[in-house]
Design a protein around this nucleic acid. Structure first.
Lengths: 168, 168
DNA sequence: GTTGAAATACAGACGCG
DNA sequence: CGCGTCTGTATTTCAAC
């Protein structure tokens, strides 16, 4: 089991989700603390697995990935072979940013990023439709992204025994 | 207009998308260079807007966001008022990680992260269904994520005049 | 949570190819 | 024009308090 997070930990995680390039000292100033304890806390958050990794966010437009689409896929059947065949094939496609195995109407939802509609057509024809397990595909295109990705809202996991002695 | 990316820039971007915590020196070793030019190139990639920001990726399970859902929304009508009303309301909901305005069958696709099904029910009943502009909603739940998010595939944007004198 | 010291990385300068 | 060596500065990191 993992340690409980206190209010300072939550604040650190929120800050790091927005901007992981801040120095410990800058984070410390925001929280009215000093760099050392911030550093220890971040190290612990990493070691305990709360922070999985740090990534750079690129501008899709500038690297010719300006068109994003959600591709909803139904397989021909739900055999174990079809599922693993599909997943194996999808993982190799660079246009597929994310692949989710879903409950409900669709078997998979893919988040796809390509240069333009021509490139998406190319992707469907030469990549996706070549996968044998595919039954039907429905596409919706992203016109506008209203909320940016990546940041999870953080609340304190159920805290049955609030510590009365937190110096924070 | 922005500068063209060469092979070293592409490599740097790929590395930084996977692990933004590597030091310039570590990146330099991977690319058989020294830290100085790497540092200069990263600075330029930031200044030119290729790299928008750096973020920490958290473990959804550990912060009680283990259930992810895609919520497909159709509005009652497509008036300008309905659209902006919906977007304004959505932005305030912490459970909504991403919000896309779509073409096609649905008006919006929301990526929602909550603790469990009970929390999702709560989210629908007390948050989403409270928005007046909402027409209908269809949910699919994520059972498994096959491909991780965030990393764009990078190719060299159309290179009409390949430089013959690249020292790289 | 604080202080202080050593190791390391950053962010310029400069000269070289 | 980009690379590499060098330099001062800031930051990280680890110790003891």
């Amino acid at each position: 089991m993992y340690q409980m997070l206190d209010h300072t930990d939550i604040s650190i995680l929120k800050i790091l989700q927005e901007n992981a390039r801040l120095t410990n000292q800058e984070i410390a100033e925001k929280l009215h603390k000093t760099a050392s304890p911030i550093h220890r806390r971040i190290k612990r958050l990493e070691d305990d697995g709360f922070i999985k990794r740090y990534v750079a966010v690129l501008d899709p437009q500038k690297i010719d990935r300006g068109l994003m689409a959600f591709t909803h896929v139904q397989l021909k059947d739900h055999s174990k072979d079809s599922l693993s065949l599909f997943e194996q094939a999808i993982i190799r496609l660079p246009e597929v940013l994310e692949c989710y195995h879903m409950t409900g109407m669709y078997d998979f939802i893919l988040k796809v990023a390509v240069k333009d509609l021509a490139a998406y057509h190319e992707f469907l024809m030469h990549e996706l439709f070549g996968i044998m397990a595919i039954g039907s595909v429905q596409t919706t295109l992203v016109m506008k992204q209203s909320k940016h990705e990546g940041a999870f809202p953080i609340t304190i996991p159920q805290q049955p025994f609030p510590s009365a002695h937190k110096t924070d």
